[in-house]
Simulated scan of single mutants.
Amino acid sequence: MNYIYCSRIDGLSRERLYSQRHLLDRNQQTTFDQFRFDDDKRRMLLARMLLRYVLTKHEGYQDPHFPYLHYNQYGKPAVMGMMGGFNISHAGVWAVCAYNPLGDIGVDIEKRVPIDIHDYKEVLTTDEFSALMQNNNNVDFFRLWSLKEAIIKADGRGFYLSPITFNLPYPLVNGVGIKVAGKCWHLYSQEIEEEYVLAAASASYKTTVFFLPSDVL
């Protein structure tokens, strides 16, 4: 089972935003301080609040501080001693954290904005680009791209795994599996407030999504 926790940044007051800063480790505080705008700070902090909530709920984490993050050679974050896998993402007013008790998971959230699909031709396979141009099977760019991002993040190599090395299966049905670089990932996606697309990829085919106010984190 995958668990995805979502929260809106506009529920995080400026007072609480800055009162949580000291719970970050030194490197995270530096990153926090480098952001010019409060909304950027909210996105960063709320994602870590969600991660702390996940660890407390699923893995018995008891420290009030945010967990220290380690990164693999490709930049994927991990928490030492964690039994399951997690991944975080944020866009616009949303921050999300996904958890799989059995292992790796990738999550992505994208905000729908006007685009020129030709700008993305180099990061899509020929079949995907053709389907988008012809609107085959009601293919939606943001749903397709968020799923590809989720797979890439679950794999752990980031864009060292090129998005043009695999085609997404059609139709894009929740729970469908795709084999990428020798691993099978089950896919999940849903709309949030019409403007956003949430996607996840993991070895588990069942997913539950929770929406949490920031004051419970």
Rank of each mutant, 00 (worst) to 15 (best):
Q73V: 10
T125N: 09
V173I: 14
A95K: 02
T31G: 13
A201D: 07
F142A: 02
D25Q: 06
K179P: 10
E128W: 03
G11W: 00
Q62T: 15
M1D: 10
H22V: 09
G60S: 13
N167S: 14
N137W: 01
A150W: 00
F32M: 07
R43T: 00
V123K: 10
S13D: 12
R26D: 14
D104H: 06
M82T: 03
T125E: 08
Q28P: 04
E110P: 14
T30D: 15
M82V: 04
D140E: 12
Y205V: 10
I115Q: 09
S214H: 07
R8I: 07
G156D: 04
D33N: 15
S189A: 13
R16P: 03
R21P: 08
V216Q: 09
P101T: 02
D116E: 15
K76G: 09
V54E: 02
A154D: 06
I151P: 05
S202I: 00
I117N: 10
P163K: 02
L102H: 12
T31W: 01
H65W: 03
A150Q: 02
G81V: 04
L168V: 03
I117T: 06
N137E: 11
D38Y: 07
W94Y: 15
L124W: 00
M1P: 11
L144C: 13
V209M: 08
V93Q: 11
L12M: 10
G60C: 12
T30R: 14
W94S: 07
V209Y: 06
S189T: 13
L132Q: 04
L102A: 14
T208Y: 06
K57V: 08
Y188E: 02
L24P: 08
K153W: 01
P213K: 13
A98G: 15
I109G: 05
K111C: 13
L144I: 07
D25M: 07
F66K: 03
G60A: 12
M1W: 02
A91M: 02
G92V: 03
L212K: 10
P64N: 09
L102P: 05
L55H: 05
A78T: 13
I88K: 00
Y205W: 05
P114W: 00
E128P: 11
P77V: 03
V180M: 10
H70M: 12
S204K: 08
K148A: 11
A201N: 08
D127F: 04
F86R: 00
G11E: 06
H58S: 08
S130P: 03
G11D: 04
S146Q: 09
A181F: 09
R26F: 05
I117E: 10
A78N: 13
S19T: 08
G106K: 05
E122P: 08
T207N: 10
R52N: 15
Y205P: 15
H58R: 12
T30L: 13
V107K: 02
Y120K: 09
E149N: 09
P77Q: 05
N136Y: 04
G92E: 02
G156Y: 01
C97G: 01
S7L: 04
V216W: 07
A200M: 06
V173R: 13
S202H: 00
L147F: 07
T165H: 12
S19E: 14
H118F: 08
L198I: 07
P163N: 05
P67Y: 01
G85F: 00
Y196P: 11
F37H: 14
V197C: 12
I178K: 06
T165W: 04
